[in-house]
Computed example of a mutant assay.
Amino acid sequence: MKESLPNVESPDWVSAVKFNDDGLVPAIAQDAENGEILMMAWMNPESLALTAKEGIAIYWSRSRGKLWRKGESSGHQQQVVEIRFDCDADVILLKVEQRGGIACHTGRRSCFYRKLVDGEWVTTDPVIKDPDAIYGKPQGES
């Protein structure tokens, strides 16, 4: 997979990040105001550099093999307030303002809407907006 990632010029500070063997680093999006963890996605050097430059969260989509600007389909952009990395330099933390209040493609505030209770996964957070209303129904479905 590393070969498929774009080869771009990155600012010097990007070289301090320890990307994995696929050229990616996990990125956690956290609400800048209340600290809630909203989602986790992957970044490559280009998406990290562009995120810092543009001030909006830009990730690397492993399934599509391309850059993914959060909110490009849903309108639910993440305005980046701060970028940090952990003590091992192998995880990025984005403190963001979540536009539209929805970070998850399921229509929920956070992707972390299930918790383990007595050995069972329990859904704890409601759907704010039906995903079909956000993204539209796939072609051929009624």
Results as ranks from 00 to 15, higher is better:
Ile56Tyr: 15
Ala52Ser: 10
Asp118Ser: 13
Arg108Ile: 07
Ile128Glu: 12
Gly23Val: 06
Ile56Gln: 14
Val17Ser: 04
Glu36His: 08
Gln77Glu: 15
Ser63Phe: 11
Trp68Leu: 07
Ala133His: 09
Arg108Pro: 08
Ile56Asp: 08
Glu72Ala: 15
Asp130Gln: 14
Thr124Ile: 15
Met43Cys: 00
Pro26Asn: 03
Gln77Val: 12
Gln98Tyr: 03
Glu120Asp: 12
Lys70Trp: 08
Glu33Gly: 09
Glu72Thr: 14
Asp90Pro: 01
Ile37Arg: 09
Pro131Arg: 01
Asp90Gly: 03
Glu82Met: 03
Arg64His: 11
Gly71Phe: 09
Thr51Tyr: 02
Trp13Tyr: 14
Asp31Cys: 07
Pro26Ala: 07
Ile102Met: 10
Gln30Gly: 03
Gly136Val: 05
His76Ile: 07
Gln78Ser: 05
Leu5Asp: 06
Glu82Ser: 10
Cys104Ile: 09
Gly71Met: 02
Gly119Ala: 09
His76Arg: 10
Leu93Ser: 02
Leu50Gln: 15
Asp130Phe: 08
Ser10Arg: 10
Trp60Gly: 04
Ala32Leu: 01
Glu33Ile: 04
Lys66Ser: 10
Val127Thr: 14
Arg69Val: 14
Asp125Lys: 13
Trp13Pro: 02
Val127His: 07
Glu97Val: 15
Val14Tyr: 06
Glu97His: 13
Pro45His: 07
Asp130Gly: 07
Gln139Phe: 13
Asp132Ala: 14
Val117Tyr: 08
Tyr59Ala: 11
Ser4Asp: 13
Ile56Trp: 11
Asn34Val: 01
Trp60Glu: 10
Ser74Met: 07
Trp13Arg: 14
Pro138Met: 10
Leu93Trp: 07
Gly75Thr: 08
Gly101Phe: 01
Val8Lys: 09
Gly107Pro: 08
Phe112Asp: 05
Leu24His: 05
Thr124His: 06
Ser73Ala: 12
Asp90Thr: 01
Leu48Lys: 05
Pro26Leu: 12
Asp132Glu: 11
Val25Ser: 01
Phe19Thr: 13
Val127Pro: 04
Ile92Arg: 03
Ser63Cys: 07
Ile58Gln: 07
Ile83Ala: 05
Gly119Met: 05
Leu116Ile: 10
Pro126Leu: 06
Pro11Gly: 12
Phe85Asp: 09
Leu38Pro: 04
Gly35Glu: 01
Pro45Lys: 15
Arg114Lys: 15
Tyr59His: 05
Arg84Val: 00
Ala29Gln: 02
Ala27Tyr: 04
Lys70Arg: 08
Ile58Gly: 04
Leu116Ala: 11
Glu46His: 13
Asp132Tyr: 13
Cys111Gln: 02
Ile37Ser: 09
Trp60His: 01
Ser142Leu: 13
Met1Thr: 12
Leu38Ile: 01
Arg114Leu: 10
Arg109Glu: 03
Ala89Leu: 10
